[in-house]
């Protein structure tokens, strides 16, 4: 089994989008924004075209997986959805970054007035 990630984080591009979303003051912190972006990616099946996203190195906010997913909810979800995945946290990191990049595109095009439209 390949070695999974212990820390997961945001790329610069994703981090910038997270900061824009943070300005709405609807989230306690980037931690919640990252999870929201992950859920957005899942909802919109970005996993099926994950290769389209150029996800660089994570230099933005980062978290230890024990803190990020204390109750292992994300872990259990990922292994339920993708039983063959060997590195669930790597997948989670990819998806939350992809989610933020996709949200960034929409925000750039249409602006940002709320988050319910993304739910």
């Amino acid at each position: 089994m390949a070695e999974d990630k212990v820390n997961i984080g945001l790329t610069n591009e994703a981090n910038e989008v997270a900061e824009k979303i943070a300005e709405l003051d609807c989230f306690e912190d980037k931690f919640d924004i990252a999870k929201f972006a992950f859920a957005y990616a899942i909802k919109n099946e970005l996993d099926k075209r994950i290769s389209e996203f150029n996800i660089g190195e994570g230099r933005g906010a980062s978290w230890n997986v024990g803190t990020f997913d204390g109750d292992k909810y994300l872990y259990n979800f990922i292994i339920s959805l993708f039983p063959d995945i060997q590195t669930p946290y790597r997948q989670i990191e990819l998806l939350m970054n992809a989610g933020l990049i996709e949200l960034g595109k929409i925000i750039n095009e249409s602006g940002l007035s709320g988050i319910s439209e993304f739910m």
Binding site: D25, C26, D32, F36, A39, Y40, F77
Partner: peptide
Amino acid sequence: LQEMKSLTKKAWQGMLGTRINDL
């Protein structure tokens, strides 16, 4: 906004619902 912040802490879980149901 405070109410919103407490909701957005768990709102993302509800967004997984469609995929969970499909699966």
